[in-house]
Structures are given as C-alpha cells and as structure tokens.
Design a protein around this nucleic acid. Sequence first.
DNA 1: GAGAAATTGTTAAAATTTTGTAAATCACTG
DNA 2: CAGTGATTTACAAAATTTTAACAATTTCTC
Lengths: 170, 170
Amino acid sequence: MINYKRQSSTFVKAMLDFADNNIINSVMTTQSSVLKARRYCEDKGARFTLLREKVYTLLIDRNGAMGAYELLDELKKTEDSAKPATIYRALDFLLEFDLVHRIESSNAFVACHHFGCNHPVQFLICESCGDVQEIQSAGMQATLDKQAETHGFKVKTQTIEAHGICKNCQ
Amino acid sequence: MINYKRQSSTFVKAMLDFADNNIINSVMTTQSSVLKARRYCEDKGARFTLLREKVYTLLIDRNGAMGAYELLDELKKTEDSAKPATIYRALDFLLEFDLVHRIESSNAFVACHHFGCNHPVQFLICESCGDVQEIQSAGMQATLDKQAETHGFKVKTQTIEAHGICKNCQ
DNA sequence: GAGAAATTGTTAAAATTTTGTAAATCACTG
DNA sequence: CAGTGATTTACAAAATTTTAACAATTTCTC
C-alpha cells in the first residue's frame, strides 16, 4: 500500500498533472483517477479515507456497474470487518461528491471518471458485457426539460438510462 | 351532454366543487379503465383474474406510484391470504401486458392509462404530491437513440424518469 | 370427466437498504 | 501533547424489496 503523504511534493505534483492531462488510459487510470479523486475531495475539505478509496478503486477497476453486495464481497478480501453498512456509507459519501453514480434500473453503482464537470449524465448499459458508458448530452437534458415544461413540470433530477448492446458486442 | 350554462350558478358551483374533489374522475375512470383492461387482456387470451384486477384497480385509484408493500397492505383488506408473492405475481402479469409500469428510481409501480399504444414512455414524478405523469415524447426517444448511435450503442430499453415539481404544486 | 396448463397459497429466504449505538480515529485548540 | 468536539468506523439489528420452491387449487382443452 502506498502512503501518499510520504511522497515528495514534486512527485505528487507531477502525478497530479499527469492525471489531469488524462494522457494515459489503460495502464495508469486507476492510480491517476484515485489521486484525482483524493485531491478533489480534500480540496472540498472532505476526507477521502482508506475505506472510501478502496470502494472507489473497486469501482474504477471494474469497467461497469457493481451491486452493493458484490462490492462488499470484494472489500472483504482486504477489510475483514466490512459489513453492508460499510459499503453503503462509503457509497453515500462517494455519491454525494459525484465520484460515483447510481444506476437505478439495475440497483448498481458505477465510478464517475469526470467528476467536477457538469452533471447530470446519461448511461448506456451493455446487456452483453456489462460495460457502462457515461455520456453527457446537453441535447437530452434540454429535450427532457422542454418536454416537462410543456406539461408545467419543473425538473429537479433526471434519470436517463439505456439498456442495449455496446459497440464492441455487436 | 349537459349544458352547464342553463344551470343556476349555485348548481354549477356545486358541480365544479364536485369535480375538483375528484369524485367523478375516480368513480368513472376506474370502472372504464378496468373494463378496458379486462377486454384488452382477454383479447390476447390472458386471464384478467380477480387478484390482478384488484391490484390494477388499486393502482388506478391512486393517482401516483405505489410500492409493493403499500399495495400489499391495501390488498390485504379484501384478500386475507395476500402475501408478498401475491403482489409480485400480479405485478409481473400487469407489467408484461404494459398495464402497469415500474418506476426504477423509486422502486414503485404506476398504472398505465393508455396501454396498447406505442411505448416506451417517460415519467414526470412530483416530489410534493407524488403524482406521476406519463408522457410519450417521440423527441426524447429519438434524441436518446441518436445520442446512443454516435457512441455505437444500440438501445433496447430506455428508462427516463424526471423528479421535480408538478404544475399544481408550484 | 380426465389430463394438462395456469393460477394461487404458503413458506421461506435471498437481496437490498437503513438505522442505532458505542468505540475508534481525526482535527483542532490551548 | 492532552483535552475536546466532530467525524468515521465497528458492530448489531432490522426494515424493505424481491425471488424461489412446492403444494393445492382452479381453469381450460379435449
């Protein structure tokens, strides 16, 4: 386990710049995403504790959605004391800071790779490989808002989830 | 057809109060909706049994979504033997024939008033009064499909639910 | 009416989510 | 660096939602 506080500040800075630039995708993303998330939380005065980091990392590593119990089973491998509440509290935190989204139509959770940007988002969920793609379509939002408006309805939160087949699986 | 202009103003006022109280709406639409549903099912060779009718009626009478246990509690008043499975089986049937929709973002169910038409639909869910409005926007569908397509994704089913404040509650 | 199919009764349990309380940890202050 | 208050975690329990399994019953078909 890496102790981030032990690293020299120049190293950390380099890593964070690295992360921000988003250059690497496959090899480094877990580390850089977690670093970015840590900084994002700490900037807001929130504590990105080890438990929360572990749950977030599990979700980042999986390229798709995970149920709470699947997360729990994974977490238990390194956290003997993990119980349902452990997962749900970590998720509450991560959801609050938009580091994670909830997929309503499958009772599951996905890591958000671009937190800090403008939400809300929409999801494309592959029935075949389980991959979850998060998209941000201003058009979708606008269309829904407009539709709602014609019915005199004021939208606060929106849930837009599509299940189907992704590019790779066709 | 009644010509309201002929009626005395006090009569008209009474009628309007009556209507506002929703009495006409609930008495008449429930019956006709249930009749329509029955015929719709029987045309397809499906059995609109008493249990299924009761569950459907409960959902029609409520102008909004109900959870499974809320339905169960209501059903128990006339069906002593009702258990969770009773509700879920009835719902399975009703969902299969699109007489009822599931609201994913609140684990609840609403009656569909215009089954037989082309689905899918979108929901406007009022946080204040619980009312659920079902809309059918071709634009929404098209926009989602198009967005998905640009990501190489083929949509099979879509979940579009907006939570907010309805016209009456603003 | 006999046999097949669908529906319901009953029981149990799995899966998901929330709550409460006490203990541990952290952050801050003097 | 000890004390204090706030936050987080451990632990226990339970509420909510959903599904499974199998027997009993009803309905349909021939």
